[in-house]
Design a protein around this nucleic acid. Structure first.
Length: 475
RNA sequence: GGCGACGUAGCCAAGUGGUAAGGCAGAGCUCUGCAAAAGCUCCAUUCCCCAGUUCGAGUCUGGGCGUCGCCUCCA
């Protein structure tokens, strides 16, 4: 059983899907008008873990995450760069996909683009106009907020208390400052699609209402996104959908906390960020994943290099423990990461043991996705890896540990499980170790230390143990 | 001005009434020619401040202080 915080009720509630085991999730995706940043990563990484956990609970999950591939900022960027909008959008979107892959975020089941759903969008607008919830104005078609009595319910806003002045842009022709655009008539040179009212493009909010309706239908079990989407985006989606479809649009509204940089929200408009791809070139994506998962998903987090470095060390600890357990349980898998992966699936799916570790992780995640508490359980187990081996429980511990890790997808990429690559031939390493040990036997420590230094330069670390000298690769 | 969130050790962070998880960093010990690894141990009498409720509060109530988010495109 999962308990989830629902923005609409402001309470943690028991999650009950509308259609039995069939769970439908719609998450507002990226508007690729600029390079994606770490804040985007946080949000989608959380929903990735949520999906994995729902599947663990036995639900069949259909996860839809849209792409807003047409909007004002993208058009502005295309004019500035002198490139077609689709080219600008595609570049940022592809970059986003690469980063998501590196972070171990699974692909959405469906990833619809706004421009592929112009038909359903226009159908919805037509219904809204016919029913009087929308009106045609000089520069576009607007939703009449006053026509929807529950407006503000999701975000807890009172319509008459909003600072509405700022909402009126000079060139907009709204009846009411709160009204928002469903369709924007094209200005010369702008990309546009034909409609019965005139060529134009969809407003931001309508695409989600239309695509969610078309692909999943109401009510969605979970509608998600970043906290900054609660108002006005999700509020507007509710107004549009529930004006013409049977409410509610969604049963659970789930929002992720913001990522801050120097105490300010990381955002495209402030530009206070390093492009995600560049960041992932210098910070281990797996450490990023751990760092996010060590904090509650609804809390704001400050970007923090020191914490990120700490997560890097933490991931090394988990990896080490995992290797210790797995090598003890399935010793032949010493360095072949691919073989290890195959074994994981073989073993995990063949075993449904729920020992203490898995139970603890399960309990933590069921409590509003408390990934930090789940990780604490994992670290406790990691600290006991040697003990499990000594007690002859390596196999069971390895299975439980692997299963728990897979719920968080911490070792998402195969290479994360492999030993770091070496340029030096292992046979040469063995030769050098022998030479060094002969020197040590003769108390020729100068030569011995020279060998150690030579190997260290190749990232090979030597460990003298009671049973002889072993080596490992520095990470 | 309205609505909302947060404030726990050097850093990050879990914890909504029962006596402070976990990670990083740090310290000591075992082992050791050196080094590392590994193991063991230690590291908040205290949770922004002040009142209050309670047998008992980081957890509830009231009041401060500070930070952030939304109200304009934003995960």
């Amino acid at each position: 059983m999962l308990r989830l915080y629902n923005t609409r009720t402001r309470k943690v509630e028991e999650f009950k899907p509308h259609r039995g085991r069939d769970v439908r999730i719609y998450v507002c995706g990226l508007t690729p008008s600029a390079e994606p940043h770490l804040g985007h990563a946080r949000s989608f990484l959380f929903f990735d873990v949520l999906r994995r956990y729902l599947r663990h609970l036995g639900y069949s999950v259909l996860y839809v995450q849209n792409v807003t591939d047409i909007d004002d900022r993208s058009i502005a960027a295309s004019l500035q760069e002198g490139l077609p909008v689709f080219e600008v959008v595609a570049r940022h979107f592809v970059s986003f996909k690469r980063s998501m892959q590196r972070l171990g975020v699974a692909e959405p089941d469906l990833e619809p683009r706004a421009t592929e759903f112009i038909g359903p969008i226009l159908t919805m607008i037509e219904k809204l106009v016919e029913s009087g919830h929308a009106y045609v104005s000089e520069d576009g078609i607007y939703f009449r907020v006053a026509s929807f009595s529950r407006y503000g319910e999701l975000s807890g806003k009172h319509v008459d208390e909003l600072m509405v002045g700022a909402r009126i842009a000079e060139n907009e022709h709204k009846n009411d400052p709160l009204d928002f655009a469903l369709w924007k008539f094209a200005k010369p040179g702008e990309p546009s699609w034909d409609s019965e009212w005139g060529a134009g493009r969809p407003g931001w909010h309508i695409e989600c209402s239309a695509m969610a309706h078309e692909l999943l239908g109401e009510p969605l079990d979970i509608h998600g996104g970043g906290y900054d989407l609660v108002f006005p985006h999700h509020e507007n989606e509710i107004a549009q959908t529930e004006s013409i479809e049977r409410p509610p649009m969604a049963n659970y509204w789930v929002h992720g906390g913001m990522l801050l940089f120097e105490q300010k929200k990381m955002s495209k408009s402030l530009g206070n960020y390093e492009p995600l791809e560049k960041l992932l070139d210098r910070v281990d994506p797996q450490a990023v994943r751990l760092w996010f998962l060590q904090t509650g998903y609804r809390k704001p987090i400050n970007f923090n290099e020191e914490a990120l470095a700490g997560a890097r060390a933490g991931i090394a600890k988990l990896r080490k423990a995992w290797r210790t357990l797995f090598n003890a349980a399935f010793g032949d898998a010493q360095t072949d990461g691919h073989a290890l992966i195959e074994r994981i699936h073989e073993v995990v799916w063949a075993t449904q043991d729920y020992d203490d570790l898995v139970a603890r992780v399960d309990e933590a995640l069921s409590d509003d996705m408390n990934t930090a508490a789940a990780l604490a359980a994992l670290f406790d187990a990691a600290g006991k890896a040697e003990e499990y081996v000594r007690r002859g429980e390596a196999r069971q511990a390895a299975v439980a540990f692997t299963y728990a890790l897979s719920l968080l997808n911490l070792f998402a990429e195969r290479k994360w499980l492999e030993e770091p690559k070496l340029e030096i031939d292992p046979r040469l390493i063995e030769e050098l170790i022998e030479r060094r040990n002969r020197a040590r036997a003769e108390k020729d420590f100068a030569t011995a230390d020279k060998v150690r230094a030579e190997l260290a330069a190749q990232r090979v670390l030597l460990h003298d143990t009671r049973d002889g000298t072993t080596w490992s690769v520095a990470e």
